[in-house]
Design a protein around this nucleic acid. Structure first.
Lengths: 249, 249
DNA sequence: GAGTGGTCTAGACCACGAC
DNA sequence: TCGTGGTCTAGACCACTCC
């Protein structure tokens, strides 16, 4: 049977809409199993590919997550709150309370896949840092055993050569304290925030399922003299993060 | 023929990867037409559904955009730079200039679908603003004729009742200048940034193609006394925006 | 072993855009 | 009119999960 009546939504969209509404209405909770392909085929009398198409809508929206050999499940969302400018904490603003309370504060980060190398500067790094070679610190952050962020920090090679910045253990206070020791303490930051779908490599390294965007934060640290001393590109699982920025009028 | 040899990527993924690399290598430029379903079927000797699946990978990644009756094209990316902290400085709205002037780098914007209503406060608005009723200003912004942002500003109903905030034309300096007139000038802002795939209604109103996330910015404005005076939820086409935040160490 | 999602084939009719 | 993408059917074999 050929169905598509012109002025109506296609079957797979209607099924997807109905499932989405059921989720929002609380008929399915986070982590619940949704009707599978076979169930949809039986319930609506449709072909396998059509049932798959309906589920793929929800999967590509990030509403549902498929598990091989098991089923399709409602996605869970437990964001980490990342403060851009922490010194302007919201406690100062008494009545103001966070809008998405992620009780995720205090969960420990782990760093794996740390990789440090001296490389030719490319693209933005060369332009922003104004140098031909950089030391790069690449690492992956995980929370609760799940990878959530890929980060790559670039420093002007001449500036940090021989310092702990080029070694795995940077000591207390991290690279910013070391930049300070070198007489180039960061005094100002600029962060650029974008969102997009991940490249395949990013999807693999972050263990992202379909329908999960990444937030790309590109932070430049400037010393008091105005010269850029670090360019840090962070790629975050959008389902794991809420970024918070505070500033005065 | 049944293909999936365990240790290899499926055909459709290999085709998608190859096309993606060709795009990144500059073989296809922004707006170029990619090989269509028929071309892929012929080139690789595959079924229609498999060719579609390969193209759908790129489409869901936001790399390509399908056009009915025409073909599949490489997506174009022309972001608007939105300044988080600079644009909200008192110099801007204090002198009667619209905040949005600084956003679009000279490209003209339009506001359509403006809708103002007094409503019961729901969810976050009730909690953050601490009131039972709010005035809501909903609008859609377009740049170059393309919708790029949906925004909904909530104000405590008692606070703004009878003021220009409840009317379409808010006068010079916009709602922040009017809040100042009411003795509740915004002194501090908190912005929460998230990214996710759009709901169907958002996708329609913003004219988003598949594979385009939205950036959700939830901004709370606080008066000097610490009370929240506005909650503004902005939903932006992620392909049209770069958010910039500046702050000192 | 039964059930699930993942991949693939080989057809079909439709709406739309370009010519 | 013809080619394009959009939707749909009715099968198939596979790898994986759960029992």
């Amino acid at each position: 049977m050929q169905s598509p009546v012109p002025h109506e939504l296609p079957i797979y969209r209607r099924i997807a809409d109905r499932l989405r509404q059921a989720i929002q209405a609380g008929e399915f909770h986070d982590g619940d199993r949704l009707p599978g392909e076979n169930a949809l085929m039986a319930e609506y009398g449709i072909a396998r590919a059509t049932a798959r198409q309906a589920l793929s809508v929800l999967i590509n929206e990030g509403v549902a997550v498929p598990r091989r050999g098991s089923g399709v499940y409602v996605r869970q969302f437990r964001p980490i709150r990342r403060h851009g400018s922490r010194r302007l904490s919201r406690e100062r603003w008494g009545t103001g309370r966070a809008i998405w309370d992620g009780d995720t504060a205090g969960r420990p980060y782990t760093v794996d896949e740390l990789e440090i190398a001296r490389e030719p500067a490319v693209d933005e790094a060369a332009r922003v840092l104004g140098c031909a070679e950089v030391w790069v610190r690449r690492r992956r952050y995980s929370v609760d055993g799940r990878p959530v962020q890929l980060a790559a920090s670039c420093f002007p090679a001449e500036l940090v050569e021989g310092s702990p910045v080029t070694r795995p253990d940077t000591g207390p206070g991290g690279v910013y304290a070391r930049l300070r020791d070198l007489g180039h303490a960061p005094a100002h930051f600029t962060e650029e925030v974008r969102a997009r779908m991940p490249a395949p490599e990013e999807r693999d390294r972050l263990g992202l399922s379909a329908g999960t965007p990444v937030i790309v934060v590109c932070r430049t640290a400037f010393a008091a003299g105005g010269e850029a001393v670090e360019l840090n590109t962070m790629i975050m699982d959008a389902a794991s993060y809420v970024l918070q920025y505070d500033f005065d009028a």
